[in-house]
Design a binder for these strands. Structure first.
Ligand SMILES: [Zn+2]
Ligand SMILES: [Zn+2]
Ligand SMILES: [Zn+2]
Ligand SMILES: [Zn+2]
Lengths: 125, 125
DNA sequence: AACCGTTTTGACAATCATTTTCATTTTCTG
DNA sequence: CAGAAAATGAAAATGATTGTCAAAACGGTT
């Protein structure tokens, strides 16, 4: 696994937004690549397994991926208009999640936190 | 829209966990109902539109629904083992989300926050 | 360079959740 | 009760994702 995986990874590196498999496929084909959609799905899976890309689900259940700058735990602020994404962290949220879990006798706490909004550029029109 | 929608709503009321359409379908059929899967999807959609049920996506993209006690904004603490769900709120998280959005020039901020863990019962085995 | 076992790739079929379609049934209104 | 409008269910259509499998690309070895 390498040729294609690197190509997919590179596409993600050059995008500030979360991208779907179809999305990436369309772009790569437009750029002249002969890559197959199946290969893209496999590359995204591998990259995610290796912790090199983050994944989240859109409201309609589609998986979208992003190559974040850090591999450390963090969250995202995503523009609903253009998809522009900023990596953010929230120490308070981490603490809160642990505490609320513990308060109810839950262990092995994890959490998902995503913030959405309209970025300044999209707000202008 | 009424007969079936109420039946589906009732199933959800009696469950502490988030349930999928298939899930509900299987239970209702087992109980002798002649309801169709399509009708369940439509009922869940309608209930969600009316703000009577919450929806979230499992890791594999399946939509699951829950009739929460409150219709006010809140979040969930979900057991990965049995699905037991507790409604929680986090004023700090609300503030944090707004602030992090504003700091980056984003407007119309919304957010998704879910906490997962293993409940006390499931932890025992 | 030719050889050979391993990995990767891509076209295509298969799955699975969800949505559409459409004819039938139920509900509502007068 | 008649007729219109809303709801229902079976089956087909969609769309994303995964599985299959034979062909192509790799890597190391003579
Ligand atoms: Zn934007
Ligand atoms: Zn976190
Ligand atoms: Zn549990
Ligand atoms: Zn909140």
């Amino acid at each position: 696994m390498s040729r294609s995986r690197d190509a997919v990874h590179e596409i993600l590196r050059q995008s500030a937004a979360f991208r779907s498999a179809q999305d990436i496929f369309t772009e790569m084909r437009a750029d002249g690549s002969k890559i197959g959609l199946t290969t893209i799905y496999r590359a995204l899976q591998a990259l995610n397994d290796d912790g090199r890309v983050d994944v989240l689900r859109t409201d309609d259940g589609e998986a979208v991926y992003r190559a974040c700058a850090t591999s450390a735990h963090h969250h995202h602020l995503v523009c609903r208009g253009c998809g522009l994404t900023v990596e953010v962290d929230g120490p308070d949220v981490e603490v809160w999640a642990e505490r609320v879990g513990a308060e109810h006798g839950f262990t092995a706490i994890t959490h998902t936190v995503e913030v959405f909004g309209t970025c300044a550029a999209c707000a202008k029109g």
